[in-house]
Simulated assay, not measured.
Amino acid sequence: MLIWAVRRFVVAPAVVGLTVLMWVSLPLWLVGAAALSPLLPGRWRALRVLWLVVFYLSIETVVLLIMWGAWFASGFGRTIRRPYWEGIHYDLVQGVMWVFFREAKRVLRLSIETDGPTPDAHPGVPILVCCRHAGPGDSFTLIHALMHWYGREPRVVLKDTLAWDPMFDVVLNRIPARFITPNPAEGEDLESQIAALADGLDENDAFVIFPEGGNFTPRRRDRAIARLRRIGMERMAERAESMIHVLAPRPGGFLAALDAAPDADVVLVAHTGLDHLLTVGDVWRELPMDKRIVMRWWQVPRAEIPEDRAERIDWLFGWWERIDLWIQQNRPEDLPSDRS
């Protein structure tokens, strides 16, 4: 409760105040950034970073004010979780994603390509979406793709650290979503929480989960392999060692969602182009980005998914091996450049 209060009554107002301060003092920031730009590698790097910060804070503040108004209009939050308001919040998220990606593509010269089944491949069928995790950018890109290109309303399982972003904290507590801790304390039943979120999916829904439990780093890869050995899964540890671009999947949450949504197909998602953008420092070093992001989608009909738990784990590992191979064959340096 204390953490929730700090996020809502300290962090959120601080973001709004910082946004106002940035706009009021923007001429000074612009002069400083312009003076620094010739001294830094990359074309107008300081100005690009400044604009992205101002732009993101502005989106955050506008969305927070809109959601504050929705809270009042819904009877001080009494009806905020009814379908009407849920639909409004999904529309708000979709609009924010469209604006954000449009500006990011312009400023950073990003291009996003998708390869795989079209929205027509899933008519009237809910889907469980399993995506590799290689940085915060892939979460945004995946949700953007699901909402704008596939016309889905995503239900998302995210790390609890993202709840410190006020916009995410508020909006994802008003639509079906879960903030979870990848390494929960004893007694926390995360699989039950995930199953509850996946229950009742309709033909317009997409349940989104990242089975690796965190962004890929070599250190996390080593820890994941060691964990498999520690719990006696030597064969899976050997398979995880053969995968060099992904972490060994943690199947518990995915299997819980699979049981809770018996009519859902499964969509596996791999991507390249955002692999090394894990921190603010990584983004700074990469600017100007000129990135080509490629997303590969595979649809697996429900009838092709095993029923036995052990066979399902083996099936998931097999798909992660396939995703690892696809990443190896489609690394950014191997893709044709679209730069002009």
Rank of each mutant, 00 (worst) to 15 (best):
E113M: 08
G124D: 15
I127P: 00
Y150G: 00
G151I: 00
G124M: 04
D169W: 08
P154V: 05
W164T: 05
Q193R: 14
I175V: 15
G116S: 04
D138M: 06
L172I: 04
W164E: 03
P176S: 03
D169G: 13
A195I: 13
L142Y: 07
L128E: 06
P136A: 07
A196C: 05
L190Q: 15
V129P: 06
G135I: 04
P176W: 07
E186R: 13
V125W: 02
Y150P: 01
E188W: 09
S139V: 15
D169H: 11
G187H: 02
I127V: 15
K159M: 03
H133M: 07
D189M: 08
M167N: 01
F168K: 01
I180N: 02
I175Y: 07
L146P: 05
L158T: 07
L128C: 06
N183L: 10
I112P: 05
S192T: 14
E191L: 11
G151Q: 00
L162G: 00
A121H: 08
L142I: 12
A185L: 13
W164V: 05
R178H: 09
F140Q: 03
P184R: 08
R132C: 14
P154L: 06
M167I: 03
C130H: 07
P184H: 11
Q193D: 12
L172G: 03
E188M: 08
M167A: 08
V157A: 09
N173W: 13
N173D: 13
N173F: 09
P119D: 09
D160W: 10
H133Y: 01
P184G: 03
P136F: 06
H144S: 11
M147R: 09
V125D: 04
P123L: 10
L146F: 13
I194C: 05
I127R: 03
E188R: 10
F168I: 11
A145K: 06
P184D: 12
D115H: 14
A196L: 09
P119F: 10
P184L: 07
P126I: 11
R174N: 06
L128Y: 00
T161D: 10
E191M: 10
V157Y: 01
R174W: 15
I143L: 12
P126K: 04
I112K: 03
R155F: 00
N183T: 13
P117E: 12
D138I: 07
N183D: 14
G135R: 02
D169Y: 15
G137I: 10
L142N: 04
L146S: 07
E188I: 14
L146Y: 11
L128T: 07
